[in-house]
Design a protein around this nucleic acid. Structure first.
Length: 423
RNA sequence: GGAGAGGUGGCUGAGUGGUCGAAAGCGGCAUCCUGCUAAGAUGUUGUAGGGUCAAAAGCUCUACCGAGGGUUCGAAUCCCUCCCUCUCCGCCA
């Protein structure tokens, strides 16, 4: 969410920022400005009437003995009350509309984000490792089924399509990856959190999942709780309505959680394998920082995610997303994509975003640079470190042997009792 | 799930219909003072939105005592609904 006062003072800055994402968003700014003006006008009117009502109330209390005066005042107050009720209705309506509209406006991209309409314009920054191109490498779902560690049929049997059972050494590998990644994060100074997996609507609004993407998530209607689509949601909201001190910053959290996404609108995408599941595991890295250090912390967080791929010796590339492809709440975002030999391409495995004060403003996370300063909004940053299921799949392919087995990456052996090979 | 108690400013805690945005204490901030420290004195001290202003400061208005409704000229205070916390009982991994 944007700062309305700032938006009022320099609307062109916001228009320009939004036009880089999508030209069709620009009109939102003018609509907001009009609504904002209407809301302020009506608020001024309402405030004046409320003021008069307050005056009358204290006048009555001061002149209780003068019965006729009191009666006159009472009736004046009642008359004002009728008018006020009507105006307040409008006030509420305008505030609602204004808030509603503002909530739908995405963050403005940072000035160093490359311009472009869609993912084709994302800019590759680096490639790491040497991609394998052996033609005999089987897709992860084939080798996974052959090895008896991925069971797609039974996943469907007990749940639905896009739910998969991981069995035996597969389950062990999944768990090893979680522990390995959490340990890596801890080593880098991230405090481990195990949050609730169901969160309320406020948390979903805070990080920007709602209102725009309603329908993408599983919700418990009777409790008004949502299954988290990412640990970003509960972790970033941990400090909701708090004013932090400079000594507390930067706050660094990591969390393993299952994540749940309905994947509506992805009907024909990645129907095979475990790349796109309704339920998947992920280790998430989250930071809360001051505006001064957020850029540096964002780079560092991205690097921390890269280190995991490096330790696992999985070839990957790093790109900066262009203005048209960047997520709703983000001002800048790096994608890490891991190599999939069977698909002869890189696939996203981590998305590391700097949100500026966009989320903090919604969640109300502030910090005081000094004791006497006014509280300012903090910056929030997050990224996957990493998506477990996709890492699992990448290992199945990148570590595959011609004998239809999968070697265990060196870094994971301690987590699998020294196991060398899944066969 | 049942019964009871309660939710007030950064914290502790008073306040049961009328200058209460809220006493007091603690904490914070500023100044002063004692040779330094510790202690002390005085003052100050929330958030959000609006208006005024070129802007900031200032001044001013409105709202906020868990949330939302209601009663009333007037609500922290009375009524209703919901949420949360605590105690007891029940159930349970």
């Amino acid at each position: 969410m944007h700062d309305l006062k700032d938006l009022r003072t320099r609307p062109d800055y916001y228009k320009e920022g939004l036009s880089k994402r999508n030209k069709e968003l620009v009109h939102l700014i003018d609509e907001i400005l009009i609504l904002d003006q209407k809301k302020r006008d009506i608020q001024t009117k309402a405030d004046e009437l409320r003021k008069r009502k307050n005056e009358i109330a204290s006048e009555i209390s001061r002149s209780k003995d003068d019965i006729s005066k009191v009666e006159t005042l009472k009736s004046e107050s009642l008359t004002i009350g009728t008018t006020l009720a009507d105006i307040e209705k409008q006030e509420i309506e305008f505030s609602f509309q204004l808030n509603e509209k503002t909530m739908w406006v995405p963050n403005t991209p940072s000035s160093d984000v490359p311009f472009g309409e869609d993912e084709k314009n994302n800019k590759e920054i680096l490639q790491w490792g040497t991609p394998r191109t052996d033609k005999w490498i089987k897709p992860h779902w084939e080798i996974g089924q052959k090895l008896g560690i991925l069971d797609f049929e039974r996943g469907v049997k007990i749940a639905q399509s896009r739910f998969t059972v991981i069995a035996g050494l597969g389950a062990r590998l999944e768990r090893a990856l979680i522990n390995f990644m959490l340990d890596h994060a801890a080593e880098k100074g991230y405090k481990e959190i195990f949050p609730p997996i169901l969160v309320n609507k406020d948390a979903m609004i805070g990080t920007g999942q709602l209102p725009k993407f309603d329908g993408d998530f599983y919700k418990c209607e009777n409790e008004l709780l949502y299954l988290i689509p990412t640990a970003e949601v509960p972790i970033t909201s941990l400090h909701k309505d708090e004013v932090l001190t400079p000594e507390q910053l930067p706050i660094k959290y990591c969390a393993y959680t299952p994540c749940f996404r309905r994947e509506a609108g992805a009907a024909s995408k990645d129907t095979r394998g475990i790349i796109r599941q309704h339920q998947f595991n992920k280790v998430e890295l989250v930071k809360i920082t001051s505006p001064e250090t957020s850029e540096k912390e964002h780079e560092e967080l991205t690097h921390n995610a890269e280190e995991i791929l490096q330790k696992l010796e999985l070839p990957y590339r790093k790109s900066i997303l262009c203005t048209g492809d960047i997520g709703f709440s983000a001002m800048k975002c790096y994608d890490l994509e891991v190599w999939f030999p069977s698909q002869d391409t890189y696939r996203e495995i981590s998305s590391c975003s700097n949100f500026g004060s966009f989320q903090a403003r919604r969640i109300n996370i502030k910090y005081k640079p000094n004791q006497k300063d006014k509280p300012l909004f903090a910056h929030t940053i997050n990224g996957s470190g990493l998506a477990i299921g996709r890492t699992f799949a990448a290992i199945l392919e990148n570590y595959q042997t011609e004998k239809e087995t999968v070697l265990v990456p060196k870094a994971l052996k301690p987590y699998l009792n020294g196991l060398e090979e899944i066969k």
